[in-house]
Design a protein around this nucleic acid. Structure first.
Lengths: 248, 248
DNA sequence: ATAATTTGTCTATTGATATAGACAACTATA
DNA sequence: TATAGTTGTCTATATCAATAGACAAATTAT
């Protein structure tokens, strides 16, 4: 990416093969390793990263299982997967329209829903009393059959009673909110962080263990500034990048 | 954060103690573990995460060495460190003003500089010919003595000859650009991703191996839209979160 | 055909990771 | 003072991670 040959760290808590797998994924995303082309041979990669050939093989094996690479005996190891999806974030962040042009199909699957008392944090974000009932939706964003996001979304249960049914039916937050008279809404705030994927993320996003997720914590509001939705979304860093759209 | 007891993954390439250390850091950042208060005892943490007490001890040991926790025999283990810095990103992203109010002192240290031919990517971003000379600055952002960012910045060498001297002197991008007649500039685009810190990041940001960095790739432009600066910045995810400021 | 290149498999060894259990050392409290 | 609760240290064992070397199997080029 920068052209810097940033090296590999040992005795870290993160295995060398995992680090090298990360580097290869980066290389693909940044264009260092072209699509459909062969990777450098294992011995060359081993030398480049200063590790044993078997360690490189472990990294490649993980990426093969992940569907990113394909190894052919005698020929080489080839890059299958495309660049990362670029997910725009701005005042009018929408799942479906945001990925328009990058994927042919996309929708949000409702994994589960429940009603619970609001924690302090959620109550503050939604401007309701702590302990008031909120609806929690667990969702997965899918594009062309691939999982690209995993979100937990909270709504005021009083104002949005039954929204889980609307979500299950429409597969869209925007469409569901319309049923409650909200035709437009804005992203009020977004806070961004990153962490290792937990077991739930791994399963829902079909990730290999050790993968990194980008985490956004966001509040959506009506045009009047009334908070309507609080959400924590997780995006697989190896498949998705977030593009900050300034104006919109 | 969400209250979900997301669990720990095994055989991942990321050791259990590293994952647990991450979780504790998250817990501190999100307020689950209050500052100056004691962590739950080791046996309780071991049970919560479903691992052996010794594994929890490895995680705690790493965080003690990192200066985040302090263990006292017979009493407990205490949280020393504060919440993450919140680094705002928007049209007017500036290092120093962005952290105002959160830290008393902050500046950018110039680690090294060089002149090199522009890669295709950098040439496109800066609107110059591929192979044209560009100045590369390697910098570290510091706040109250702690490293909070590590950036690589490129400028058109023709237009900004000598900017490395200005940077070394002023410790500020904004001040340096003023010397070239640029009194204001805007963030044109930002792309966000995350990865494991490489050896260079680890050293410069004083991180424990295995740590995660948030990565932004950004282009700054003049008010007329002329590109002036291309930068890749790395932020330690355990110490910094990025706050997207919508309007500004 | 032959050789060179590349991925695949096997054995062996070393160190890091994780579990298990026992007990020591220290602190706070009843 | 005695007791419970907590961190610190030690031994032992099993598995994972990484290195090392050798050779097989498949493909491509000479």
């Amino acid at each position: 990416m920068t052209g810097l040959a940033s090296s590999i760290e040992r005795r870290n808590g993160v295995s060398l093969w995992r680090q090298i797998a990360d580097r290869i994924l980066q290389g693909i995303a940044s264009g260092d390793f072209a699509e459909n082309a062969a990777l450098p041979p294992e011995v060359a990669l081993a030398e480049r990263y200063g590790v044993n050939r078997h360690t490189v093989r472990s990294a490649i094996a993980a990426l093969v299982q992940e569907g990113v690479l394909k190894a052919e005996q005698g020929r080489g190891t080839f890059v299958l997967s495309r660049k990362r999806l670029s997910y725009p974030i701005g005042a009018r962040t929408r799942f479906s329209t945001g990925l328009q042009g990058q994927t042919s199909e996309r929708h949000i699957a409702l994994l589960s829903s429940s009603t619970e008392p609001a924690s302090r944090r959620i109550a503050e974000a939604l401007g309701i009393a702590k302990g008031a009932a909120v609806i929690r939706l667990e969702t997965r964003g899918e594009a062309d059959g691939h999982a690209v996001s995993r979100a937990t979304i909270w709504f005021d249960a009083k104002r949005f009673a039954g929204i889980e049914a609307a979500m299950a039916e429409t597969g869209s937050i925007t469409a569901s909110l319309k049923r409650f008279g909200i035709n437009d809404y804005l992203r009020h705030s977004t806070v961004l962080s990153a962490r290792h994927a937990d077991a739930d993320d791994l399963a829902a996003l079909d990730l290999q263990p050790g993968a990194i997720v980008l985490v956004t914590v966001a509040v959506n509001v009506t045009l009047d500034g009334e908070p309507i939705q609080f959400a924590e979304s997780r995006f697989p860093a190896e498949r998705v990048e977030l593009r900050l759209s300034a104006g919109d």
